[in-house]
Design a protein around this nucleic acid. Structure first.
Lengths: 184, 184
DNA sequence: ACTCAAGGTTCAATGAACGAACCCACAGTG
DNA sequence: CACTGTGGGTTCGTTCATTGAACCTTGAGT
């Protein structure tokens, strides 16, 4: 009967012969897809992920490391002194956009929530279809050409700076200005 | 400063104003998407999920109950005596097909794995595109018209009856014959 | 009366997530 | 030089979730 060698628990969906299961081993853990979503929104720095997600620091560090190891984010030093790091989404992350788009639409449509954000084709303003295509232009919109347009359902005065920056229309991947701790 | 009332841990991505986060509250837990995948494959019975997924019984019971409560599966008594239950995917489950399809493709393409299964338009045999459309017929293929066609990478002699049935081409949603415990 | 099958529940052990506290390197300020 | 602030982490005790083995229940078959 040759028992499978006990590989304990972990991220593995042991016996599955299925690329969905393989994908979930990589991005299926708690928080992971939200980290990737934020990376596509333009979040790049540890502290910005932290405040925008409300994720425990240790978990964030673990996820960033795992995503870097999987080639989904790239860790870069953006200044030497003091040493500062950023995490930039790779093509692997961009390739997840259709999945994230369709998942978000599923959530809103099936549980009829208020429209929080419109995703539009920046060239023509048309709202994207189910998987991120532009129905008017009949093409899959490249991620940098997706416009994130705030909808009526959003809190007009959020606590963290990332959410505040997301109250203005902006493109995916466009990095955030790290506000120089000014005013108030 | 009005702390948010501590809702402990749980399935909530507390502060997120985002339909992706809402969706993940529903289908983001470990095993959940694989249960839905199996339901789309045609798995309907507790024991079939159990052996095909290799999931702990308690977790399976919890997931089936949660998915039923969310209207993603429907629990039905398919015979009265002895009382037997089945879990049938609803439209909400079918609406997740593009998400699952794109997730599976992402996994295979980004980590260049062997092709395990082809998903084809049953009417014309063309392999589906990124999100479940037929490139030839230029339409989003309805879930019941998707043909699941085993590829070269599959184990030719799997242990559980569901995997064995999946070695033959079959449509999504088509229920499995529960083999009457014959032979051997 | 015994056995078998489906569809579960219970429970102790293990692992992961949480959150508060701490650490370090450096820059700027007085 | 001491002091404070910021970015990017690590450590650690507590709580929660997952695991796997054992057990339970209803009814059929023999």
């Amino acid at each position: 009967m040759a028992k499978v060698v006990g590989m304990a628990l972990g991220k593995d969906y042991a016996t599955q012969e299925c690329s969905i299961a393989r994908a979930l081993e990589v991005v299926g853990e708690r928080w992971t897809l939200l980290v990737i979503r934020d990376a596509l929104y333009g979040v790049r720095r540890y502290n910005d992920f932290l405040v925008h997600l409300g994720i425990p620091r240790a978990v964030l560090a673990a996820r960033l490391q795992a995503l870097t190891a999987e080639g989904i984010l790239e860790k870069r030093r953006y200044q030497e002194s003091p040493p500062r790091e950023e995490y930039v989404p790779t093509d692997r992350a961009l390739a997840l956009w259709p999945t994230l788009r369709s998942l978000g639409r599923w959530g809103r449509e099936q549980f009829d929530e208020p429209q929080l954000r419109y995703f539009r084709h920046a060239d023509c303003g048309t709202e994207l279809g189910l998987y991120g295509e532009c129905p008017r232009c009949a093409l899959v919109v490249p991620v940098p050409d997706v416009l994130v347009d705030p909808g009526p359902g959003l809190d007009p005065n959020p606590a963290d700076p990332i959410s505040r920056a997301l109250l203005k229309p902006r493109r995916l991947l466009q990095p955030f200005e790290s506000e120089p701790a000014a005013g108030q």
